[in-house]
């Protein structure tokens, strides 16, 4: 067996109960997560959950939440699925990208890219 520190793995297990997939409707890597505005900070939540709730007051894509938490993407998704089930965050529905980009957004993106 390897001598790798089991600590992080056990910690990850604790965050997800060992689940590999989030509950409920699937969501995309860049789906926008938003903290529900009326939530009352629940004291019994894990620090990671509180971090998400605080971060996502500003709508934040799933991948960014993972990068911010420094947790693996799949673990992050399990956490987000749980918070959604509790009604603490919303996660937007997947939409085909081309349909969400209207002329105005298209222009903004081109202009933004060119002025980088």
């Amino acid at each position: 067996m390897t001598a790798a520190d089991p600590g992080p793995l056990i910690r990850l297990f604790g965050l997800t109960g060992g689940r590999a997939r989030p509950v409920g409707e699937t969501f995309d890597l860049v789906a926008i997560v938003t903290t529900v505005s009326t939530y009352v900070q629940p004291v019994e939540h894990l620090p990671e959950h509180l971090t998400v709730l605080s971060l996502c007051r500003s709508p934040t894509p799933v991948a960014d939440v993972a990068a911010h938490l420094r947790l693996p993407l799949n673990i992050t998704r399990v956490i987000l699925g749980d918070l959604r089930r509790e009604g603490l965050v919303t996660i937007d529905r997947p939409r085909p990208a081309a349909q969400t980009i209207d002329e105005r957004i298209y222009r903004e993106v081109l202009h933004g890219l060119r002025s980088l």
Partner: peptide, 18 residues
């Protein structure tokens, strides 16, 4: 105010994946 902003932002926030 921050919460209100978040709710409004949810409608328009968009992440384009490439």
């Amino acid at each position: 105010a921050a919460s209100e902003q978040a709710t409004a932002g949810a409608v328009s926030a968009l992440a384009i994946k490439i």
